[in-house]
Amino acid sequence: MQEFIQYFFSGITNGAIYAVIAIGFSMLYNSTELINFAHGEFVMLGSMCMITFFGSMHLPLIPAIILAIVCVTAAGLLFERLAIRTVKNPEHIVLIIITVGASIFLRGLGMLIWGKDAFSIPPFSSHPPLDIHGAKLLSQSIWIILIFLLTTVGLQLFYKKTLTGKAMEANAISKRAAWIVGIPSRLMVTLAFGLSATMGAVAGVIIAPVTMCSYDMGTMIGLKGFCAAMLGGLGSLWGALIGGFLLGILEAFGVGFVSSGLKDATAFLLLLFILYVRPGGIISSADVKRF
């Protein structure tokens, strides 16, 4: 029982991280039908900014977090303006290769700025771990889940209660119809890019204390987030949540009950299985277009 709970804790901690990254993927997909392969690099930027602001400059926690998120969001907006909007008559696959190029570029930039070494920062607070039936819930895990909940509730409120959020959602449902009622679709796309980068930054900020951060950390974690988004169903907020947690928990139990060497294989096998059974992810959204 104790082990079971411990695996579960490990699963939801990783799951919350995957979910935040998956939301970033999903949100962008909703507005642009684009998968951003540089998303993992935004996570990396978030972590590394946190290292700089919180770790080296010793800013207080909250300003450091805000500053890190603002920086990465700005980078996301810049990327959209310089690399995505300049393409005329874009095909999806072309934009995707641009994001692949961007991911290499950002990784190189990260290496130039922060060097090749890994860094770590202390947890946000130094409470002893919570003890539940002998299983330990780490203080940073509580922070991760808390920030994750805040983010999702915030997003939900933004989409349902604010005019901008509603406009974004309308734009995601039908660009044309939204345009007819006067929603500036280009601005909505920019906004989606910015928000998606924000999500990446949030993920980067919350994992900075649990893991070791280096310029090349983004690829693998971005990939996991992408899997989570696909697993749940692209374009759906709830899908991203379910996908993220499912992937995290699967991995943890994969380690516990199968083998740690095959944990990724277990997760991917199940993913293939789910895709075969439900070809649109767990929460199937509208038909996903081809490349």
Partner: peptide
Amino acid sequence: IPTLKLSGYYLGMGTLGFGMIVNILFRE
């Protein structure tokens, strides 16, 4: 046979998952 029933990004994901599993097999 099962994967090509998927389309678009889901096909991308399916083939990606397959590639990862094969790579893990090579390693393990």
